[in-house]
């Protein structure tokens, strides 16, 4: 999970610009002394394991058969990439990513508009309400949605009996489309506040004069939205989309709780988890983990290079 970062730390204190070389060296040392621990910790708990995973993925290694460990080079990758289970997990993950991000963008934008223009009196109430899903534990959200739809404990079937298909006998978690529907609903509910806060930040950057000028020119609400607001928010929207897409691509908690990947709901993260942690196939599981990592890398790369999304913001 990350936050809005379009506002890169930019302007420095005047003194920091003093061109004294001794001072520069001293600052550099102090800078690294202060920033170093955080930097090292971040590297240690992410880079080291991913290198280890890369190494493990070249072996056939099962935790409960430690003596049969053998070097198989890229065999694990061939197995994974050629497997229908992997392909299906990849497609499901992409589907969830695209749908949730698209829906969240719409709802998130609406929420951001409400937060931005609601009367001061109600601002606190609205913010509080929106922050509840943001702060709530994903697993709790998963259970809330699961119990609402579950055939035994749910009330959704009772409420929406008048719809076709749905009735007291409809098992939401018995087939792919309906199970994915509930999984995505929970994911959307939980993470929309995040996207709407990013968009709120973007809204605040829309120059008010432009809007006023458009108003004077007789532009209606929709026209102003379309011609002024959205174009000036482009950067914020792109950042929000990329961050959420990367997050959605790693979806795990909701699927684990609701279906554990049954009936065509398995995602890449869950497949990686099940292979290495549940099946204890460290080698094969590491291969899936590495592939997942590469996918995320690819998305970030495409976003930055192709769509020119400035995630880090500003200059170097």
């Amino acid at each position: 999970m990350s936050t809005t970062v379009e506002q890169r730390p930019a302007h420095k204190g005047k003194e920091a610009k003093a061109p004294v070389s001794d001072r520069t060296r001293g600052e550099r040392r102090l800078g690294w002394m202060l920033a170093g621990p955080a930097f090292v910790v971040m590297l240690l708990v992410t880079m080291y394991p991913i290198v280890q995973a890369l190494w493990d993925s070249l072996y056939s290694y099962r935790l409960t058969a430690p003596d049969d460990r053998s070097f198989v080079f890229l065999q694990n990758y061939m197995t994974v990439l050629g497997d229908p289970v992997f392909l299906s997990a990849l497609l499901v993950t992409l589907f969830i990513t695209v749908v949730t991000v698209a829906v969240e963008l719409v709802i998130g934008f609406a929420l951001a508009l409400v937060m931005n223009s609601v009367l001061k009196t109600f601002r606190g109430v609205v913010r509080t309400a929106i922050l509840v899903p943001y702060g709530i534990i994903t697993v709790v959200s998963a259970f809330a949605w699961f119990y609402a739809f579950d055939i035994n404990t749910g009330y959704v079937n009772t409420w929406f009996e008048w719809l076709p298909i749905i009735g007291p006998d409809f098992n939401w978690f018995g087939q792919q489309w309906s199970a994915l529907f509930v999984i995505m609903a929970s994911e959307i509910w939980k993470t929309t506040p995040f996207i709407s806060l990013l968009l709120l930040a973007g809204l605040a950057q829309v120059p008010g004069e432009l809007n006023e000028a458009a108003k004077v020119d007789g532009a209606g609400w929709w026209q102003r939205m379309y011609k002024v607001t959205l174009p000036s928010m482009k950067a914020a929207i792109m950042v929000a989309v990329v961050f959420r897409a990367l997050d959605a691509f790693r979806i795990f908690d909701n699927v684990f709780i609701m279906t554990n990947g049954q009936y065509g709901t398995e995602t890449l993260s869950l497949l990686a988890y099940r292979t290495s942690i549940t099946r204890l196939e460290i080698g094969l599981g590491s291969a899936v983990s590495v592939i997942l990592f590469l996918c995320v890398l690819l998305i970030a790369f495409v976003a930055i290079k192709v769509f020119k999304v400035d995630l880090a913001g500003g200059k170097g």
Binding site: V45, T46, A53, D56, F249, S276, I282
Partner: peptide
């Protein structure tokens, strides 16, 4: 690091 897929590092960890 914030974009890192957590599941990828849980096994090596």
């Amino acid at each position: 690091v914030s974009m890192f897929p957590v599941v990828s590092i849980v096994t090596p960890l």
